[in-house]
Nucleic acid binder design. Sequence first.
RNA 1: AGUCUAUUCGUCUAGAGGUUAGGACAAUAGAUUUUCGAUCUAUAAACAGCGGUUCGAAUCCGCUAUAGACUACCA
Length: 543
Amino acid sequence: MELANILFPKVTLTMNDMEERYPKRNLPQGAFVTRIGPSPTGFVHLGNLYNAIIAERLAHQTGGVFYLRIEDTDSKREVEGAVSTIIDAMAYFDVNFDEGAVSDGDNGNYGPYRQRQRAEIYHVFAKWLVEQGKAYPCFLTEDEVQKIRDEQFENKENPGIYGKYALKNRSLTLDEVKIKISNGEKWVLRYKGEENNDRIVVDDAIHGKLEMPRNYQDFVILKSDGIPTYHFAHVIDDHLMRSTHVIRGEEWISSLPIHIELFKDFGWEHPIYAHTATLMKMDGASKRKLSKRHDPELALSYYQEEGISKEAVWEFLLTLLNSNFEDWRVENPKTSYKEFPFSIDKMSSSGALFNLDKLRDISKNVISVMSANEVYEKLLSWCKRYDEKYFVLLTKYKERMIKALNIGRGGEKPRRDLETWKQALEFLSFYFDETFKIEDEMPLECDKELQNNFFKSYLETFNFDDDAITWFEKVKELTRKLGFAEKPKDYKKNPENFKGSIVHITNMLRIALTGRVNAPDIWEVTHALGEEMTKERLKKWCE
RNA sequence: AGUCUAUUCGUCUAGAGGUUAGGACAAUAGAUUUUCGAUCUAUAAACAGCGGUUCGAAUCCGCUAUAGACUACCA
């Protein structure tokens, strides 16, 4: 008791005061309260989004609360502006919080939502643990701890402060503590781990039953700066903020005994845990964890910069999370992914391998079912931030762009050739004189003279108002006149009878108009470009 | 070194003792089309290994292997 007062002289509030300040939430039966707790390191990664999506879906599907808590207990790792990076990234991906940290403070009644601002709260509970004789001050310096660890490794012992290594600081007398503190010696608060053969059993929402030995280590509760470690902060925060479900990476499974024990000590019910699999990547022949250094796609900013639509990223992660999402998507091709009934039971417990091919395919599907207007708006808002040149062009030629985007869109089987915003702009670049360039070679079968001939006659008979069928009839006639095969099959059968086939002729046109062989239907392109631009581009090929 | 966790086609996975082990992406082949990275059809492709329980095992139990996590005053 006296020890507690020596360590926490300023703490006057009690645990009860805290319970009253953060009362139970008044929510309907079955509502989930979830959160994400990113660290402001300046790097927001896919795993953050992965967990955020799970937490967000579970809360919002059940009419619960989803909040953002900033876990900034490690001041050394904190990066300037990182909090707004997190908030921005989540907003970009349409992950909406009901409460928590916002760019200029807090929103909600369970704050503060930045852990460093909660120091006083933690101290109330830390003090109580000391009073109960479950925690004690430890005056070991970081170097001393390191030395112990090194020795333990050498002797093949389990590293950490426990048993005989904890003895000295555990058994300090009150007077000794007083003297050390008045000497200004730094201390951390450690938990008194118990060494016995108990095992703890937890029912994990993803893994099912998890069983392991109880914690025996004297882990750190409060660091020397008075800020808690993750373990302590997690227990206090998720209790006071009344989280019902904790969704976090599986790297936390190992520290579950610590958390469970703390919950038990305080007499609280622990939330339901859901430990998610780590995202992996193929490296040569083996799987490995995605790493910050080698895998740009780990950073959320990668998707923003590449212009991978947020819908595609969501759907991709949803297919990893709930494999039945894919079937659902086939049956509901146009429904928003938000309507999908996400289920925690369907989550896989093994590490999902991150596959960009799949993401590409999903992206194409997602964009192909959007309306031309929608694509236009999304392209525009992406350009606004990442490609100013196209932002100007898109704004200037809006009408033309929408016509172009309409090509092959809307039917039962829409064209799937747009993948990312960045790639889409490249694909669409030929619609603007400012970015148009000839990329492919004219077919070998068509020499300079023939090209000349062809484009001249094409322009002579060209009528912008022809419908697609009439237009194509004219192309066929020209093809015949030039000694080319009207049907590619005829040419295939008897190549010696022709100079080439209609494929070569249409490719000439395609290249003149779009600069490439791979482009949408010529007639459609012509009508998106307009009469004037079409003629201009063709004229360049006549001398 | 200890403690956990995981392991089904190349990849994501379905599968809760009896299935020709299913689907999707990628791959390959063919077809179609005025081009195509579009479309259609088809093909190939998997239960990590070894034991055990059982009439019967991808499924239950052991062991081994492999991969990963944790054992920080980092989260």
